[in-house]
Amino acid sequence: MTARRLFAIAALGLLLATSFGAGLLPKFSYSAQHREFTDAAPSLRFPLGTDELGRDRMARLLSATRVSLVFAAAASLGALILAALIGGVAGYCGGWCDRALVHGIDLMLSLPWLFLLLAVRALLPLNAAPLTSLLATYALLALLGWASPARVVRAGVRSLRDSEFVLQARAEGVTELRILLRHVLPNLRPILLAQFWTSIPLFILTEANLGFLGLSAGEPFPTWGSLLRELQDPLLVRPEAFAPVAAIALSVVCFKLLSPRGGYQV
């Protein structure tokens, strides 16, 4: 394991451990409004100060870290399962099935994601709890984010389908299901892993965009995107308000470092 990957794992581990650990502390609330301490500077009580409603920035940042990392990973996994199914079927079956699914993938890739997300989100029930709306947002991301990995998966499956060892297995009378499960799928693992790691930062950044526009989780639930909204103030001079930017940048870099370099080998 290279040093860069070790660094990435250590940094992400530290982020996750701190955020989960903070969640166990009583009185470390991301929603409590300390109305007598609005816009407070950093102090022992509030290490990153408070926001405009008097909420503890540190508590909100750690809660947002927990949510964004876990949910982005879950969305990435969901998108990957869809991508594996659709890309796998297209690549393995070939013919009209491949052509139809490739057209579907192209269509999905040509859609303006952000506007589609805005439109779909507007249709969600209003009475959803903040956590539910966040789940719905990430579920939408997973439903819309499978196309790009599916194209890579399809190419990989096509390559494997026509590979010599698969031809040999087929010639020896091995069933298609066994070929798929024993020969193709295990060899797809590097591709799937690469797609998993590269999708997470994509989803993190997409949620950050939505949150920045005020269209992610409902208040008071914090996400990295919603915390970035504080930076909309053009005259903001508090460096501690930039902590979510640092957290996003660090995690995105770490996920990039975790992604396998140099493609994959079959």
């Binding site: 409603l53 005020g214 909204r229």
Partner: peptide
Amino acid sequence: AGNRSRERMATMIQQDLTALGMRVNVVTL
């Protein structure tokens, strides 16, 4: 969405009304 004053007001009302036992969801569109 995008009107920060209103979003803040809604969030404060959300907290105020917890004292009455009301659960309020703030939705921005």
